[in-house]
Structure formats: C-alpha cells, structure tokens
Amino acid sequence: MLLISRNYLIITALSISFILVGMSINSELCLAASDTEVAYVDDEFAEYDEPIAVINDPLEGINRSLFKFNHNLHTWLVEPTAKAYRKVTPSMFRTGIVNIFDNILEPTRFLNSLLQGRFVEARETFLRFLLNSTVGVCGLMDPSTYDGRELHERRFASTLAYYGVGSGPYLVIPLFGSTNLRGVGGLVGDTVASPSWYIFSDPLVVVVVKASKTINHTSFRLGEYEKMLSGALDPYIAVRNAFAQHQLQLTE
C-alpha cells in the first residue's frame, strides 16, 4: 500500500517537473511581452514597480475562497490552540521542538545547496547537522548557531528557481497557505528528500507532525498574523504580495 503511494508520488513529481519546464518557457514569453508595456522605467516610482511575473494569478477566484478558509482556520483554530499550548509548555521545550524540526531538514538543505553549487553553505549545513545531531542531542539544541554557523534555508523550490524554472501561477493551498506551481514542485522534492518522509511513513502521521509544527511555530508568533493584516485594505492581495516579495529573494 505504502509502496504504491510512493510510486504514485514519484510519478506526480515527474509530471510536475514536465509542467514546470513547460511553464518556464511560457513565463519567459510572458516577460518578453510585458517589456513593451513598461513605457516609463526611469522615474522615481519605478523603484516600486511590481515585476509582471510575480502577479500571475489566473485562479484568483478559487484562491480567494481558499484564502478565506485558511484565514478562518488560522484565526479560529491555529491561533487559539497555539495560545493554549503556549500557556502549558515552557518556552525551552517549544524552542527545542523548533530546533528538532530545523535539524531534520538539514540533509534536504545540504542537498539543495550542493545542487545550486553553493559549496561553502553546503559544508556549513553539513557541519551544523553533525554538531546539532550529536552535541545538540538529536537536534534538540542548536549549538551551531551559537558557534556562528548559521542556517541556510535552501529548499528544492529555490533550486528550481536557481535553474531558471518560472514561478508559474500563484496558488493558495488549504492548510498550507501561499505558494505557486514551482513551490508545489519544490514541496514534492523536499518531501521525497526529507528523512521524515522515511521515518513517518504513514500519511496521517505526516499530517499530525505538520500540524504540531505549525502550532509550535505559531506559539512564538501569536497575534502577528492579525497585526500584519490590521492595516491591509485587501488582505488577500497583501498576503499574495508578501509572498511575491519573498519569492524575489529566493535565489539570493
């Protein structure tokens, strides 16, 4: 049963990569067309012009309703749960959980740093994993950061971006949030390359683990989401734009 689901996943990953290749060609065409539209380039407003490629949102209607769903889920379930959880657990425990989740993804980051030819980062990530898994008691603590060896967030999505794969349409996924087609491809890659995929083979366990991670993470950032959107005229656009701005940093 499990074997089937994995094979299925690999097939999905392959088909997504085909779509991605198709899309990257497509988005190049898009960009070429948009160049003619930007008549004014050198005025003071140009600094804040939005690149056409990041506002590709053909599914806005569906995305908006999914955004609403996620928004309500966060406001009425995730945030209150995280608040209660924070009350009953010491901060040290919660930091430990963050560290464990960070540590378990280090092999994935290592792989992607290598794929992007960032060898110095790959070496650092490798050393981080080694130190944090041993001295840091299976990743519970993070002595590497104290040592000045910082975490390098390199995931499969950034590898795709590195090789010039276009972002594809913006997507809102229930429970997960903002992404784009490239992000979905990246997520599949990350999942297959992540050790937790092989440790927790049951999909239900994967969902529970992901939920715990979200609650634990939110417990450090209570109220931030609400505050972030308190000045927004259109929360959907505000979140989409924040995501787009993050995407521009992906290959930096």
């Binding site: 804040y48 939005e50 927004a232 005229l233 259109d234 505000a238 734009n241 924040a242 701005q245 993050h246």
Partner: peptide, 12 residues
Amino acid sequence: NVSLVRNYRSQF
C-alpha cells in the same frame, strides 16, 4: 523582506 510601500502599492 517585505516592503511596506511595495505591499501597499500592490493593494492600492
């Protein structure tokens, strides 16, 4: 990494 001005512009 999220510019306030850029974010407002995208909404306005």
